[in-house]
Amino acid sequence: MKDSHGRVIDYLRLSLTDRCNFRCVYCMPEDGVCQMDHGEILRIEEIERLVHVAASLGIRSVRLTGGEPLVRKGVVDLVRAITDIPGIENVSMTTNGVLLPQMVDDLKAAGLSRVNISLDTLDAEQFRAITRVGRLEDTLAGIDAALKAGLSPVKVNAVTVRSLNQDFLAFAKLSLDRPLHVRFIEYMPVGNAEGEGGTGWGVVDVIPSEELIERISAEAAAAGLPALVPASRSSKPVGWGPARYFEFPGAAGTVGFISPLSRHFCGECNRLRVTADGKVRPCLFSDDEYDVRAALRAGDDAAARGVLLTALGAKPDEHHDKVGTERNMSQIGG
């Protein structure tokens, strides 16, 4: 399945819910967002049906997102159902990790292959400030549980925000002794970025990846660590996607950099996104949406297929440095 720019599209990101047990500053306003009614959200069986249709078009990888996907009832059964769909080669998830300790074994048994865990600081007080409600120890326990369960790879996603003054070397060092793949993601202007009800994004808070690589390397040298070097092909984690990966020589994991603004990778985009209420988005930064929920509720697979193909044809060549989207990140699914 190719879009109008010749890119192979084989990856579907599915938001299971707009609800979350965190209120991260870059994801939603402090008061949260107006939650969708239960009837607006795709039902579990509708999501499964959608993946059947998508797989028939060439989708091979599915990532479950939110909000926080683990707060969605029936998520384990959904993972099992999607894993069994012909053509689907892997099912992964992005989560804040809080519920992983009690759920990861069931998720692994159901077929979840890998997980990305969102973590933006290793300082407990700052973690509380960023998430507004979370505890650092809960997310760290989620990382431990994912590794213990044998999910591979386990990636740690850190959004980099200049005004937060995060300790990036401390993050990079997580890759030294355990097979963790730390990825630094440039702060993106998604949602009502500035003004009342906004998430506070401003261009001054964006740390270009090249600057961050230099900074981590300098701090590593000052700490007596070897410099980061490009990761070998064998070191790169499965599903490495848009990240550029580096490693400390001899480390168990890697350090990746995702640069949607300073070095965008639109030319390599391979994905479609579906929101929790069944809207297909051709691009994270685009407000264009195509309703697949109506077709699914009508039991019309041909119509659902048509919606996906229409969205495919509407994928832009790139995001053209667009600032702000009508929906916040938690409503889009990342």
Rank of each mutant, 00 (worst) to 15 (best):
K279G: 03
L261E: 00
G278N: 02
I258C: 11
D277M: 01
G256L: 13
G241Y: 14
D287V: 06
G250F: 15
H264C: 06
R271Y: 14
T310C: 04
D291K: 01
L284K: 10
L261G: 00
S330T: 12
C269E: 02
L272M: 04
A302V: 06
P242A: 13
R263I: 01
K279N: 03
I258S: 12
A294Q: 11
E289P: 00
L284M: 09
F257V: 08
R273E: 03
P242R: 13
F257I: 10
A298P: 00
N328G: 04
G306Q: 06
G278W: 04
S286E: 03
R297G: 10
E289L: 04
V323D: 15
A251C: 09
A303C: 06
G299M: 03
L309I: 09
G253K: 09
N328L: 15
A314C: 11
P249H: 12
E268M: 14
F285N: 05
L309S: 08
N328E: 13
V292D: 00
E247Q: 12
D288H: 13
G253Q: 11
V307T: 08
S259Y: 01
L296I: 08
L272G: 00
T275D: 03
L308G: 08
A243K: 11
G306E: 07
P316N: 03
S330V: 14
G250T: 14
R327G: 01
V292Y: 01
A295W: 06
N270Y: 04
S286F: 03
V280H: 07
G278M: 04
R327Q: 09
A298M: 02
V280Y: 08
A295C: 03
C269T: 02
V292H: 00
L308C: 07
R327N: 06
A304H: 03
L296K: 05
V280K: 05
G313Q: 10
S259N: 01
E247Y: 04
K315I: 14
E289R: 06
G313I: 09
H264W: 02
R305N: 08
G306A: 07
V323S: 15
A243T: 12
C283W: 01
G250M: 15
D321A: 09
L308N: 08
S286T: 05
N270C: 07
G239S: 12
N270P: 06
T325N: 05
A243R: 11
G241C: 10
A304Q: 00
R305T: 08
R271P: 14
D317E: 14
A294W: 04
V255L: 10
V255D: 09
P282S: 10
F248N: 12
L309T: 09
M329C: 10
A294T: 15
T254P: 07
D288E: 15
F265A: 11
G253I: 11
L272R: 00
P242M: 13
D317P: 04
F246P: 06
A294H: 08
T310D: 15
N270G: 07
P282R: 12
G278Y: 07
A294Y: 04
G241A: 13
L284A: 09
